[in-house]
Nucleic acid binder design. Structure first.
Length: 591
RNA sequence: CGGGGUGUGGCGCAGUUGGUAGCGCGCCGCGUUUGGGACGCGGAGGUCGACGGUUCAAGUCCGUCCACCCCGACCA
């Protein structure tokens, strides 16, 4: 490709609304352009990288017997109503009506489309196992898109779906994906770790997320260096240290003026925070036969711990949670700041599983300015649900081995879910098994966003001059710069560059040829910015000695190589660069 | 949805007590220059986010709305 014909312009300055490195550089280098919040155009450079990423995904999917297809972006509401997600998913789902007033959905994922197909197509166990995938646009109307391509509303995703006759089959396909995903990220040179995650709106009973660790990530993970346990904070388990057992003491009401917070309370009463009970009120949207209902939930954790809303949501089977307003709390008879489960009725009480083992806690008295001392679970109050609902924090003990865990930030670049039979049962996607019985297809679903992957790689590989794309996904393999003008013989330089351009193309090398009438500084800076791994410079200086200059983007050394050896040397270096990435695929132990 | 911020040419920005819009980069033409974002001269390009109000006069003051960014809530 001749740069004089390339649709994209490098920018000397980044747009002021780009903050993180990958966003700024992808825009400055002319890869992407924003159209609206969370909606981007992939310019020719980005499109080439994305195509390469997608081809890597294709290759790895095909290796585990995936069949590529293409499912529609626009769905009739009926298929989403059939699984119940039409009502279950909120404003994040794009909906519109067609000209006849039919409700339509912009696909945010494709489980519905899959089960709609397989309920007709899959009739016998003889057709299973099967794995299908496609690379398709999704729309998720995220409340807050951010960080360039990391978190967008419209995006392209490779999503695959495994279909099996039983759970053992699913386990196998899940494990296949677990490895294939590591291969995909390794081939894109992105370091990732797999962590256990919440199943979220996908349903199902096991899920892993592939996380690229970076401070700009928006997910928090807990990781145990000792035993390797790793999980999203949303579900991370922890060992809770019990306070020493005490004999239950008599319930006592004490005046605690202005002690509305745990810190204030502990200070006022001169007791440690772990001797208090923290009350958190949430409004839970719970779905029953008649539709959604909001219900006040009173959650109690020990005073020195934090509530984990995802755990609470799962514990009460809610669709969504939001903090309760003071008026909603007051309506239940509780007093904000002095709230207590003692003596409350008609409210769902959820306590952390550590509370029943904690004796003589201080809790509110549901009376302005007063707390109860020596509150004990079972004797003074009971809960509707006892479950683990506290958030794991940096330094908390690992649930598996007890060592302190670290909290780190990461970007979720892929995920895999064991869906089970939830979707297939919902629509009657069954097959006849060898025993003659009708059984629902056992499913898994697996996704990687290609744009987020590109942005993560850009975030990982850059320096103050620009991007440094790994060869496997760089838009081009070689950036050829011709330096004409000046005292040298421009015609000779240009002819040499032109010939080299043609020769390299002949060899199948992907070349971006900077044939523009620009000064050397401009060309070098643009080359650094765009970040193609190998740069060749044809100028009169080296040409007088019968050579051209070669430089690898991530190395500082420049070398002059003889003109008649250029093609040979370049193809060799390119091969080495590929080998450096692709020969490093590790077999990962499934955890 | 809560908190904070920003909207002026493609990008980055300035614009005074209200007086009819400017700078740098980029773009076009001519010339000089040519191995790390050169220089001179001459140009093109703006309904100042939108609507309404105040005023003789609004980029500037007032009101309403919209868009975009950041933090949080939320999220595969």
């Amino acid at each position: 490709m001749r740069m004089s014909r390339l649709l994209s312009q490098t920018l000397r300055e980044a747009p002021s609304d780009a903050e993180i490195a990958s966003h700024q550089l992808l825009i400055r280098a002319g890869y992407i352009k924003q159209l609206a919040a969370g909606i981007f155009t992939a310019m020719p450079l980005a499109k080439r990288s994305l195509t390469k990423i997608e081809n890597i995904m294709r290759d790895e999917m095909n290796k585990i017997d995936g069949q590529e297809m293409s499912m529609p972006v626009v769905h009739p509401a009926e298929i989403w109503q059939a699984t119940g997600r039409w009502g279950k998913v909120g404003p994040e789902m794009g909906r519109f009506q067609d000209r006849n007033g039919r409700e339509m959905v912009l696909a945010m994922t494709h489980e519905e489309a899959v089960v709609d197909i397989i309920k007709d197509e899959i009739q016998s166990y003889r057709q299973l196992p099967m794995m299908i995938y496609h690379i398709q646009t999704k729309w998720r109307d995220d409340p807050r898109p951010r960080a360039g391509l990391i978190r967008v509303r419209e995006f392209t995703m490779k999503d695959s779906y495994s279909l099996d006759r039983d759970w053992a089959g699913l386990d196998l396909q899940y494990a296949n994906h677990y490895q294939a995903y590591f291969n995909i990220f390794a081939r894109c040179k992105l370091p990732v770790i797999a962590v256990e995650s919440d199943v979220g709106m996908m349903g199902g009973n096991m899920a892993h997320e592939y996380m690229y660790l970076t401070p700009v990530g928006e997910d928090t993970l807990l990781i145990c260096d000792e035993c390797g346990y790793s999980a999203n904070r949303q579900i991370a388990e922890l060992q809770k240290e019990k306070a020493g057992e005490e004999k239950q003491k008599k319930l006592k009401k004490v005046a605690t003026p202005d002690a509305k917070t745990i810190v204030g309370l502990a200070e006022y009463l001169k007791i440690p925070e772990h001797k208090t009970a923290k009350a958190v009120f949430m409004m839970a949207a719970i779905q029953d036969q008649e539709g959604d209902k909001e219900k006040l939930v009173f959650a109690i954790v020990r005073g020195d711990m934090d509530l984990n809303e995802t755990k609470l949501l799962n514990a009460v089977g809610a669709k969504a949670l939001r903090p309760a307003e003071e008026s909603e709390i007051a309506a239940s008879g509780a007093v904000p700041g002095y709230a207590s489960p003692v003596g409350l009725k008609n409210i769902m009480v959820v306590v952390d599983d550590l509370i029943p083992e904690s004796t003589n806690l201080v809790a509110g008295a549901n009376e302005e300015g007063f707390h109860f001392m020596n509150v004990n679970y079972g004797r003074d109050f009971v809960a509707d649900v006892v479950a683990d609902i506290v958030a794991a924090r940096d330094g908390d003990a690992c649930s598996k081995c007890g060592s302190p865990m670290k909290a780190l930030r990461g970007v979720e670049v892929g995920n895999i879910f064991k869906l089970g039979t939830w979707y297939s049962e919902a629509v009657g996607a069954t097959f006849q098994d060898s025993d003659g019985k009708e059984k629902p297809v056992v499913m898994g679903s697996y996704g990687i966003g290609s744009g987020r992957l590109l942005a993560s790689v850009a975030e990982e590989y850059n320096d103050k001059y620009g991007l440094m794309m790994p060869i496997t996904i760089a838009p081009y393999e070689v950036h050829l710069v011709e330096l004409v003008g000046g005292k040298g013989d421009s015609e000779k330089v240009h002819l040499a560059a032109e010939k080299l351009y043609q020769d390299l193309i002949q060899e199948g090398v992907e070349v971006l040829f900077d044939d523009r009438d620009e000064s050397p500084g401009v060309k070098f800076n643009d080359a650094d910015l765009i970040g193609i791994p190998l740069r060749l410079t044809v100028g009169h200086r080296a040409l007088q000695e019968g050579g051209i200059e070669i430089k690898i983007r991530h190395e500082s050394e420049k070398k002059v190589i003889p003109l008649d050896k250029v093609v040979e040397i370049v193809t060799e270096i390119i091969q080495d660069l590929y080998a450096g990435v692709e020969d490093n695929l590790d077999t990962v132990e499934f955890k």
